[in-house]
């Protein structure tokens, strides 16, 4: 199904969830559209709680979640459009990989469960191990067979709780490709992670949760730009660093420059003004820009900034 102008895939409205005196999720609202969205936060921030609320496995203490205009709570019918990959490793150890995925297909009442299972297993590249009992799988294999079981019905929305745990780098890259491909096909993919690098490499947009509250959402570079009260730093390589540096110093958006042989580090007070001015200055001086990289633009810096705030 191509993504139409239908209902918003995931809509979280003022969701709170507390356990006794502990508030795990505190008044969180956001919408998630097609594409890959990363739910980022340190351990214990409330990511799992939020994902459980979104998949109908926890009742929100306040607020509500709608998935494709259906409520999540008390509505298992929602799983016709939703696939869930839980964090816990356990599978039915006595079932083979193929039986495990086919069981999911049958429970979804798909017309041809064998074919659907084979296709899903093919997608996660587990065909070679599909006839072995899942109890003997490695962590990464379990993770992939779990993903196969949750995409067997070709869901519009896929929710994954810490999907990269226990995967080796090659499996990680493969899983990222798989999720990107699903997103390109118009699906909505939401995954949680406490590892910045994963989210940074995979997610189109990010939701940052800190201590149960939504600290930021959107494109993380965008978020970074919004925080103008902290200077940005760029690393620039060009055909003539010295000349470019001298010219840029006169720009009001630049607050400092450091020269180090080939690389020039520029501290910028006004992000927008700087990015608009730089190409013009370089062109009028006849300088070729070889590299312009925001040097502290990693999610790590965004994140530690948000946590400190």
């Amino acid at each position: 199904m191509p993504p139409g102008p239908g209902p918003v895939p995931i809509e979280v409205e003022h969701v709170s969830r507390w356990f006794g005196n502990v508030v795990a999720v505190n008044d969180i609202s956001f919408k998630v559209g097609p594409g890959v969205t990363g739910l980022l936060g340190p351990n214990g921030a409330g990511k799992s709680t939020l994902l459980h609320v979104m998949s109908g496995f926890l009742k929100p203490s306040a607020g509500g979640v709608r998935i494709g205009d259906e409520p999540a709570w008390l509505n298992p019918g929602m799983f016709r459009r939703v696939g869930l990959v839980p964090e816990r490793e356990a599978t039915y150890g006595f079932l083979t990989g193929f039986e495990f995925v086919r069981l999911a297909a049958k429970l979804h009442r798909l017309p041809d469960p064998d074919r659907a299972a084979a296709r899903a297993i093919e997608t996660v590249e587990m065909a070679g191990a599909q006839d072995r009992a899942t109890g003997g799988y490695s962590k990464g294999m379990k993770q992939r067979i779990k993903v196969a079981a949750s995409i067997v019905h070709d869901p519009q929305v896929l929710i994954l709780d810490e999907p990269f745990n226990g995967m080796d780098p090659r499996q990680r890259i493969h899983m990222m490709d798989l999720l990107r491909a699903m997103a390109r096909a118009g699906r909505t993919v939401l995954f949680s992670s406490h590892i910045l690098e994963e989210v940074e490499r995979l997610a189109d947009s990010v939701l940052v949760i800190v201590a149960g509250r939504l600290a930021a959402s959107g494109d993380f570079r965008e978020i970074r730009r919004l925080m103008t009260d902290r200077p940005h730093t760029f690393r620039i390589r060009s055909s003539d660093n010295r000349d470019l540096g001298a010219a840029m110093l006169s720009q009001p958006s630049v607050s400092g420059i450091e020269l180090d042989r080939e690389v020039m580090t520029v501290r910028v007070a006004d992000f927008g003004a700087f990015t608009r001015a730089l190409p013009g200055v370089a062109r009028t001086r006849g300088i070729t820009l070889l590299e312009v990289a925001p040097s502290d633009e990693s999610l790590e810096s965004v994140f530690s900034y948000l946590v400190r705030r």
């Binding site: 298992p76 019918g77 799983f79 839980p86 816990r88 039915y92 979804h108």
Partner: peptide, 15 residues
């Protein structure tokens, strides 16, 4: 206990 219940409950089947 072992967490496999999710594979039955996260399906569009009446509980």
């Amino acid at each position: 206990d072992d967490g496999t219940a999710v594979y039955l409950l996260a399906r569009p089947i009446p509980r």
